[in-house]
Design a protein around this nucleic acid. Structure first.
Lengths: 315, 315
DNA sequence: GTATTTGTGACAATAGTTGTCACTATTATA
DNA sequence: TATAATAGTGACAACTATTGTCACAAATAC
């Protein structure tokens, strides 16, 4: 095997192993330890952050970073990756430890001149807008970690007035229009609930010994299963104008209920939990004349009540 | 210079030049043409897509792809890049020619085993949700290109009923909650206007010879300047509950007007174009009792009118 | 036809790489 | 304290790879 190929392989190997001895590598690559030592020195000079300790149980370690081999991207691909990462800057909170900007600047730095020029021209011409919120999400990492390792997390949850302690087992986390949400099994309610991460006041791994449930079948790709199971349902039917259809398309919950007609108008039809009446009443009022609720009657009543209240307010 | 170093440099060089002859490179690198030929063959074997033509005006070319040199990413960085790109899959339309999924799979493929494992675990545990819309955006590329090169674009714009032809000079494009928008100078209205890209029925580069305006000072990073200049303004003041503040944070237009109090509540205060009254009336109705409009009176009147209409509809 | 270009093969000179051996130095542990 | 395990360095000979030169083939634009 030629030296350059061996160096490449070595790069990968040390990144995979993270901890290793010279002898080990010498055996693996069928060269002498002297050669490996020389190679490692060269890798060091190439930027791989190696660290070594002498003595028994000593050996080499790779610090933190890992090397990505040369990858052939098309120009379009490189640009797309750049802007995807660029969009992350809109998120003040991310469940990754590192600032994504460091990755971005590395990526940018290594790109050849004309791709860089291309990116510079595009930088102020394209954007993925995400609402910037004041809300704080300091516990995304621990929630995500809980979801991955299926751990029970103890959180304090609530609004300004009332805070309650709960044990939850996160299913995952997702960001939607600037807010982070965490669907999770709630040991208090004994059902799946959706938590808004900015209302989580604290989060730590539970130490009381509560056994995690077996929720491996639940994940974000499996949304239907995330709905709370023990609720009273009623039937929803809403007529929508063309604009009403557009507005509903932006709503996560309506995807399965939305039907479209040839002429652009449409309707919502499906089951809805009774607990959603307040939310939906307000939502359909917001659609104005672009939505006409036909049933359930409870929803219509709530809409009427709210309209009356508003009328009173504006005299 | 050692061979491996020269090969790396060569990789960069050929990617920069895209078209070159063996002799050129030989001079540049101070080696013989024979050596360069051997090097190029090696690069080929390493995956650089080289193509050559013999004869005068012949030479080498790099096809399409460009090589990214080995980059040292931390694990966190690699993961962040992956999920940033992963989020792009929610966009059915992008202004890049290539599917971003191809870039993603390359990236994934080259990542070392344990980062890949990490990603696999996280895949169904974290997501960036963007509303999926039915709308179609086939002209993003031409609009973006127009914005970059400051070209005049001829579009057909409108709703189902009325379609009008217009000349525009795009400032940029951006995606917001699942829809693409294009702020542009409109030669018909002689002012900056915001176009919804799904209402653009066709778009071609203008050939009538209309001179582009000098709009280099306008770009997406410069939003204040994008507001239409010749409009009648009036003063807006709205009281907001805590929830009302939250809802307004998600709205793009409200960022500069939103003020917060210590207790979480807040208010909107600022100038608003009179043309926005219908939109704002509907918006504040949607906020229900979380918003109380204090002025302008025209807005309050419109809200009352709309409430009355809704009351009538629901009997 | 000529100049320009890629492309191949052979070979000797040169340059780089490797293994061995003999060292030094540090450190955990028996 | 002795021992074994580990990194690390230097010198040198044997080996291997790289390079330049030269000869020649083949395609192609002008």
């Amino acid at each position: 095997m030629s030296k350059s190929k061996r160096l490449m392989d070595l790069m990968m190997t040390v990144n995979r192993k993270k901890k290793f001895t010279v002898k080990e590598l010498a055996t693996e690559f069928n060269v002498s330890t002297r050669t490996i030592l020389r190679d490692l020195q060269e890798l060091s000079e190439l930027g791989v952050p190696l660290y070594s300790e002498v003595g028994p149980h000593g050996g080499y370690q790779v610090l933190n970073e890992r090397i990505l081999p040369p990858i052939a991207f098309t120009e379009e691909e490189a640009v797309a990756i750049f802007f995807a990462c660029h969009a992350l800057r809109h998120y003040a909170y991310l469940p990754f430890e590192t600032e994504s900007s460091s990755a971005l600047s590395k990526f940018y730095f290594y790109m050849s001149g004309d791709v860089r020029d291309r990116i510079d021209e595009m930088k102020n011409r394209i954007d993925f807008v995400i609402p910037s919120r004041q809300a704080k999400f300091p516990y995304l990492s621990i929630l995500l970690d809980g979801a991955i390792r299926q751990k029970v997390i103890r959180i304090e949850y609530g609004s300004r007035e009332s805070v309650s302690a709960r044990l939850i087992q996160p299913v995952g986390i997702y960001a939607s229009s600037g807010l982070w949400y965490c669907p999770a099994y709630c040991f208090l309610r004994e059902d799946i609930r959706l938590f808004r991460c900015d209302r989580i006041r604290s989060a730590v791994e539970d130490t009381s010994g509560t056994q995690p449930r077996d929720l491996r079948h639940l994940h974000l790709g499996n949304r239907e299963a995330l709905l709370p199971s023990e609720q009273q349902f009623t039937s929803l039917y809403v007529e929508l104008s063309e604009e009403g259809v557009h507005r509903c398309e932006a709503e996560y919950w309506s995807a399965t209920k939305l039907h479209r007609r040839e002429d652009g108008t449409g309707w919502l039809e499906g089951r809805m939990p009774k607990g959603d009446i307040p939310f939906l009443a307000q939502f359909f009022i917001g659609l104005g004349t672009d939505a006409t609720v036909k049933c359930p009657p409870e929803l219509i009543d709530d809409i009427k009540r709210r309209l009356a209240e508003l009328m009173a307010r504006y005299g």
